[in-house]
Design a protein around this nucleic acid. Sequence first.
DNA 1: TTTTTTTGTGTGTACGAACACAAAAACAAA
DNA 2: TTTGTTTTTGTGTTCGTACACACAAAAAAA
Lengths: 362, 362
Amino acid sequence: MERRIRIKDIAEKAGVSTGTVDRVIHKRGNVSPKTKQKVKQVMEELGYEPNIIASMLAYNRVFKIAALLPDYHVDPYWQQPKIGIDKAIESIKHYGVEVIPFYFNLFKAEEFSQQANNILDQSKEFSGVLLAPLFLKEASELLKQCSEKHIPTAMINTNIENSESLCYIGQDSYQSGVLAGRLIDFGCDKVDTTLVLNLAKGVTNAKHLLDKERGFRDYFNSLPEKEITVLKKDFEDFTDDAKLSRFLKTIFEQHPKTTGIFVTNSRAYRIAKCLQLIGKKEVKIVGYDLLEENLQYLRSNDISFLINQNPVQQGYFGIMNLVNHLLLKKEIDPLQYLPLDIVVNENVEYYLKRALEFSIVV
Amino acid sequence: MERRIRIKDIAEKAGVSTGTVDRVIHKRGNVSPKTKQKVKQVMEELGYEPNIIASMLAYNRVFKIAALLPDYHVDPYWQQPKIGIDKAIESIKHYGVEVIPFYFNLFKAEEFSQQANNILDQSKEFSGVLLAPLFLKEASELLKQCSEKHIPTAMINTNIENSESLCYIGQDSYQSGVLAGRLIDFGCDKVDTTLVLNLAKGVTNAKHLLDKERGFRDYFNSLPEKEITVLKKDFEDFTDDAKLSRFLKTIFEQHPKTTGIFVTNSRAYRIAKCLQLIGKKEVKIVGYDLLEENLQYLRSNDISFLINQNPVQQGYFGIMNLVNHLLLKKEIDPLQYLPLDIVVNENVEYYLKRALEFSIVV
DNA sequence: TTTTTTTGTGTGTACGAACACAAAAACAAA
DNA sequence: TTTGTTTTTGTGTTCGTACACACAAAAAAA
């Protein structure tokens, strides 16, 4: 390999000092137009690429990134993005990057706002913000403020479109609904009625849930040969098995031909449990996420499919994108959809293992 | 964040010079036992972690890695691992790592050997070897030689067990066969006969193909309630549509209840094409890999499922593992199974996109 | 014209680790 | 004690970049 071009090489060839080249590279000004021109030309000619290693060493500054996430004590799902964030920290700690988490209760918008304000109060501290913008209004405000302060933001889990965020990393909710439709459809010869079930507290106007439903409906609408009814229900008190069982029973009484249930979040296991309680066996369930509770029913085939949202990767890539932007000044793809993994009993182990072990330490 | 501990800090606290600390860290010897003891103790106490950035910069040496792979002009599948390797190169070029490819015709063991010898001839040049050990005997020999020369090796695609290789990155062939069984089974209510089809030239004693078949059979054997026949056929002249069509026709005549075909490599599209030619529509096909030819039939639902072997990731992680081992002296997991992704029409786009875009540049 | 300010350029040190070489200490043999 | 040899320890330079500082020349203000 030919020797890599250094600033010194450029300086020599352009007949200036390294300081001047440095000024051109970093746009620090105070360079006469024609010197600047000359330096740029030589850089082009020699194909200069900065040595990031040396650059990082000399730069010698700490980047702080704030991470605004749901408290995983309230919903265990959120442990997973945190695992990814921790992996990212591990990968990049040598670059002097620090991540400070801020947690909120995912059912309480005001807690989100409060933590957002905490971040904004210390905003001079932070070079970047990673967030799960679960609350549209509150998150939009934070994104706006950050944008004004020129602090780049990365969103995971939920996408707020038209925000001035650096990027979104997560799933395509609409398409995951389409996929759920396909999976329900695939296993049943004679699908007649399917149920979209939303187990969440509070009025969930959450856009990503509506997108899932829309995708699901569109899948069945796209099948001209079949005539399938798609029901949609919300149920709030999902921690109460008795109530939920009664609720399901009522549905089966009203719609006896219901052969598939699509649970739009990670709580499919609650449905699987209640179906066992009320003795319904032939109903297919499709849900999300590889929580231990779900896996149990996946292994016993009471849940047919789980769609993996790659939560660990969301956290990991969220941080990595901010770092790539801040430190390496890389161009960042604003919309990064992670794959919609179809998980069954026979391939689940690899996803679990990868979630724990993957990480590219460099 | 508290300041990170430097060699200088250790030296001061231990009352020695940085040179001595350096000698202890790198086990260069020539340190009196009690000084060594003292330095080690202080390192422990302060929790020293080397600054990799500074270390890399000072190290200032080029690592060369040889990559022994099938020529992708012969089989387009092999473009994909190459893409991953190129991504890895991009990610780590700043660390002074170079990758030199050596190609062989995947149908010719002697070409493999020849290239292996080329690598061994220049073995002083290479700090590591990445290889796809398609030929058991020839590859084992190479692995043995590398081991003797203390050159670490990483295997992708095919695993040679009990070799002294640093690691294997790829799929679990047996389990992918099990998964294929599940997928064939899932879509058909009344499976009766299924066919395992091996489209390859030469006598394919390839272990990973046998493992796939074994997994497939085991899946159906594990279903006590169903009585399913699993046929196994090899067919060499798969580029000749007419011959292949005739071959398939014969099979359907002999086994009219064949409802699913499991193609054990990336050539499922040839079967899909011939089934169209002979007008068989109701037969499910499960195959491997997201080749353009396969995708076409996946989109038209003539191929039901493709199992993604993550070939891009294989190349990427193969290189990254060598780098982690060589440069960062990380502990490497010797057996790294990549997920068995189930790919259908509704989620294929994300896998294609990720294969092209993923990469963690740091 | 002199003084002050602005602009342009070069020099030197720091970042933390690696390693070559010099110096000092310890030991051995005369 | 001296000299030579080996072992142990310390010093100084290097890697490529960032940035502070020094200093000149040019421009603007007095």
